[in-house]
């Protein structure tokens, strides 16, 4: 499983890095970005789905 942020949609609500800080971080302006290559370890799949289902802009995809 991998995660990706659509930077066109992201508005910096920060729900992803609140809920899954091991997968997402914030940049200097508060926009979300994927840490590393976005690969989700098996024990991180639940939090990845939590980030997806709480993003108000529907900016996160699971690949």
């Amino acid at each position: 499983m991998k995660v990706r942020i659509d930077s066109e949609r992201c508005q910096g609500h920060g729900r992803c890095y609140d809920l899954a800080p091991e997968l997402f971080g914030e940049d200097d302006e508060g926009y979300g970005h994927v840490l590393g290559d976005g690969a989700v370890p098996p024990d991180g799949e639940r939090t990845a789905r939590l980030a997806v289902s709480n993003c108000p802009e529907r900016a996160i995809e699971i690949l």
Partner: peptide, 20 residues
């Protein structure tokens, strides 16, 4: 509630700048 895509801080380019 686990799934909560609420819009309390708005949606789109005017997302509340002070939300954090």
């Amino acid at each position: 509630r686990e799934v909560n895509r609420h819009a309390a801080f708005g949606l789109g380019i005017h997302r509340c700048v002070g939300s954090h």
